[in-house]
Amino acid sequence: MIDWSPIILTAKLATLTTLLLLLIGIPIAYWLATTTARSKPVVETLVSLPLVLPPTVLGFYLLIAFSPHKALGHWLQQYMGIQLLFSFTGLVIGSVLYSLPFMVNPIQAGLSNLPPSLAEASYVLGKSKLQTLFYVLLPAIKPALLTGIVLTFAHTIGEFGVVLMIGGNIPDATKVVSIAIYDQVEALNYEQAHLYSLLLLGVTFCILLVVYSTNGKHLKHFWK
């Protein structure tokens, strides 16, 4: 019989990561889309790094940073009582960093492509930047928001290297589906590995299908 706990854990991790990234990603994307600051290319590079960096590199640095023997890990464990290594919380933080470009890039592109007069019209009508963002700009880039949400979710499901480095293989805490597959193959338990793999294949296929058909306007009437 299939063990559902890695699946539930993966869904929990992906959902939480997506929600957190929505909160973090919108301000970063808005800043990148509107700023003229010289530091913009640096921030853009940092945000996009996980696209090209091997996940093990990110995982390695997080492993060191979260270690109770280092300043940050020590401080968190000593004063906040939070242990980030080999814990679900650490996994969430790792996933947020790892999936950051998948949320920020589509939203930034969406905001940059809007004509500047849209925001200006709202300012002239006496509306603040925050009101303009929430009532005018974000509603105008719904497809980009959907893309960001879905890609982040799918990318977090597919995460392996970072989890392996900082999470390990602890049931109900860090044993997500991708790790479970690896685990089952190592134990030559191919039947279970098949089930998990097929499930991930199906879910990610459906998710990407939604993105592409929405951006192809096929689902426009559902979305508008």
Binding site: P115, S117, A121, V124
Partner: peptide, 16 residues
């Protein structure tokens, strides 16, 4: 702009 009493009609309309 928020504190100026101005009505502005843009060349490209800029409707929401």
């Amino acid at each position: 702009p928020q504190q100026r009493s101005v009505g502005y009609v843009f060349q490209e309309y800029a409707l929401f």
